[in-house]
Design a protein around this nucleic acid. Structure first.
Lengths: 122, 122
DNA sequence: ATTAACATGTAGAAGAACGAGGTATACGCA
DNA sequence: TGCGTATACCTCGTTCTTCTACATGTTAAT
């Protein structure tokens, strides 16, 4: 059940910033691209998407203006602000630091169990 | 500011399960080891640690018994249940799938901006 | 005697994600 | 013309996790 796609908290913002950094897009397209690029691993429900967008806009990391889609529909196109770009870089670095660390921990082997324990228990 | 260490949601449980899988440990030591092994990237506040442990215990992923520390103090030593081990494996796999996907997205370059847009806007 | 490190715990608030709902337009097709 | 589907936006309420801050007691070192 829980084996679907739940993104870790905070990651959604990072991904949105990243997609928007590639060029102006509207919300609906952001969700689609995330899903496509990740081969369906990342799926963003609208109930998560739009609140996230508004959140980022309120923090002045994104700016939006209404424009017409190629299909002739009005949509809010988002672009990064300067702060948004900085935030993207910071969060990207942070993400790497963190996943590297977690990866390191997950690679720990059980090779020390009975005896060597003293070395790192203390 | 937010550049401290905040773990993504759910990750704490995974890391705890992993450390406990290496052998019986008490809570305090779990936090220490996570910090050591990750070179201070991962820092678990006690207000996060103990609730997480209780959570995992309530889900029958961990079992605890009081024992004496090498330093002569009473402490709750946690060990994995069978379900806990299964959960660890599942969450590890899930973690990798997800970080791979996010890594892929973060590697996207801005090489397509002006022209190719049509290909993936649709 | 007092501080630092060890070891456990709770309460309350903040924040994020999601499911479920709602509105409205464009387009193809019967 | 009517209908369904895909596009495109939005919000509300619930649930879950985490963090800050607090509270308690023990052992070891200075």
């Amino acid at each position: 059940m829980t084996a679907k796609s739940d993104l870790p908290q905070g990651t959604l913002d990072l991904l949105i910033l990243k997609i928007v950094a590639l060029g102006p897009v509207h919300g609906y397209a952001i969700a689609q691209r995330l899903q496509q690029v990740s081969r369906d691993v990342v799926q963003v429900p609208q109930g998560s998407l739009y609140p996230a967008l508004h959140r980022l806009e309120n923090r002045d990391l994104l700016k939006a203006d209404w424009k017409e889609t190629e299909t002739g529909r009005e949509a809010k196109f988002y672009r990064l602000t300067r702060a948004g770009r900085a935030q993207l870089e910071a969060e990207t670095a942070s993400w790497r630091r963190l996943t590297d660390a977690v990866g390191l921990i997950l690679k720990l082997s059980v090779s020390f169990r009975p005896g060597v324990r003293a070395a790192w228990t203390r």
